[in-house]
Amino acid sequence: MNTDQIIIKMLSDRWHGAIKNFDTAMDAITDEQLQKEIAPGKNRGIYLLGHLIAVHDDMLILLGLGDKMYPELNEPFIKSPDKAIDEIPSAQVLRNCWNKQKEFLTQQFNSLQPVDWFQKHTAVTAEDFIKEPHRNKLNILLTRTTHLTYHTGQLVLLK
């Protein structure tokens, strides 16, 4: 393995570990517990689940892997704060979306070659990428892994 492959493996393993940790936390939380706020006046667990699906949907665009799977989740879970939208999908619907999206992302990530991860993501211009080559697809994976880990830590408070 060369250095690029080692770096990609390290970050990919961390992504998969974060997904596994999130799944473990979600498996331990009932749909009823997802309706509770993480802390008084804070987001509910169901909002965090929908938020992560919506953010990972954006990742498909950023990585050039296709269209969003669930564009309807953008408004209630990214553009709006929790409880601002009366009708949101049920916990079961969101759990199913999470699982389908997780499988799709895994397939897409496995199809990328090492060189692909070091290419620019879609939110950076070619000119800016020349000046800032760290603004690549692998960096998106890193930031989204950190984001997922943060919200996993919040979810465990629901138990």
Rank of each mutant, 00 (worst) to 15 (best):
W15Q: 02
H147R: 02
L138P: 01
E37Y: 04
F104K: 12
E87F: 00
I130K: 14
S111G: 07
L60S: 03
V93R: 08
I8R: 04
D86H: 10
Y150E: 10
R135G: 05
N110E: 14
R144A: 02
H51Q: 08
T146D: 05
L142N: 08
H121L: 05
Q101D: 05
L60A: 03
T149C: 00
A28Q: 11
D31G: 12
A126M: 05
D82N: 15
G41Q: 05
E72F: 08
Y150D: 03
A54R: 00
I19C: 13
E103M: 11
Q5F: 01
I78L: 15
N2T: 13
P81V: 02
T106C: 06
E72W: 08
Q5Y: 01
T145C: 03
L49Y: 06
I29W: 05
I61C: 01
T30I: 05
K68L: 14
G153C: 05
K120G: 10
T122A: 12
N21R: 13
Q92A: 15
R95L: 11
K42I: 02
E32Y: 00
I7V: 15
Q5C: 08
I85E: 10
I7F: 11
M69W: 00
K120P: 11
K83Q: 14
H121I: 05
D23R: 07
K42T: 09
Q108T: 03
K20V: 08
K79C: 09
G45R: 04
I6M: 12
P89Q: 10
D67V: 02
Y47G: 06
C97P: 03
Q101N: 06
E75Q: 14
K159R: 12
Q154D: 13
I7C: 08
Q107V: 02
T24V: 10
K68Q: 14
E72A: 13
Y47N: 03
P40F: 07
G45H: 03
Y47H: 12
I140T: 09
G50T: 09
H51C: 09
V115D: 15
L34F: 12
D116V: 00
R144P: 02
K9Q: 14
K36Q: 12
E132F: 08
K100F: 11
L52I: 08
H51V: 09
Q33L: 13
D13V: 00
A18E: 10
K159W: 04
Y47P: 06
T149Q: 12
A18G: 10
K102D: 14
K131E: 15
L142Y: 10
T106R: 11
I8K: 06
I38C: 07
D27I: 05
F22C: 10
Q107S: 13
L158Q: 13
N43L: 07
T146W: 00
Y70G: 02
L60W: 04
L142V: 02
P133I: 06
Q33M: 13
L60G: 00
F22E: 03
I88Y: 08
T122S: 15
T143I: 04
N136Y: 07
P114R: 02
Q92S: 15
F104D: 14
D128N: 13
M59P: 01
T122L: 14
F118Q: 08
V115H: 11
S12Q: 11
Q113L: 11
M10E: 07
T106I: 07
C97I: 01
K102V: 08
C97V: 01
N110C: 00
R95T: 10
M26N: 02
V55G: 10
L138N: 01
T146Q: 07
N136H: 12
I8N: 11
H151R: 01
L157I: 00
